[in-house]
Amino acid sequence: MNNENSSEDLTIKEQRELQRQEKQARAEERARSQGARRWLVWFGVALVIVGGVWGMTKLAKQQPTVVTGEPIPAVSASDRTNGATNAKVTLIEYSDFQCPACGAYYPILKKLNEELGGKVMFVYRYFPLRGIHQNAQISAQAGEAAGLQGKFWQMHDILFDNQAVWSDLPNAQDTFVKYATNLGLDVERFERDMDSDAVKNKIENDYQAGIKSGINSTPSFFLNGEKITGPQSYEEFKKLIEQALATNA
């Protein structure tokens, strides 16, 4: 097929030249349209990528707002409460033992409880920010497991007092067991409870209820069911509670 014809005559030579020129013209035309097509394809790809990122950003932002609105559940027997029972004013905190802001509010709440504990009920609910705090979940389990032996608030205090100690530990569980020992808990039971479905479900229920109420950060405070935006100081917080006490007197 590829044999070169040694005895070419002029007409064949001319024909070949013509064919070559036509071929070149076609190739140029193809290259031109291909260039336009390539440009379009790359543009389309860029558009899809930018559109995709935009869409994902929207989706990521959307979630908390979609689920807002439901009131938080009323205080029940399964809640970890402190202060006055049957109080006129209830302060519910959705919190994460590993969240630094919760740690900052901890002394404020402790002081409030000392001063107003006779008239106000304080409730702690679990809202572990598992997406950003590696020990959020296990610390909540430690708190709840201590609660099953009647020492939730003692464990609560120890966890917040030592937040910086255990926050980054890969095996925080061991540290929590030590805290349990110090509190004089039945350690074997504590370890069993910490890993039990009952404890995990309790935390998950708190968390899901919080999500349904539109909570997206910790700590989130609810004074008699109304969400309050984080008071900046002890005085501010106390004033808010005293106002609630006055209106519900």
Partner: peptide, 9 residues
Amino acid sequence: IQHYTGGNV
């Protein structure tokens, strides 16, 4: 995005 904004996945 969720990682950097700390959103709830």
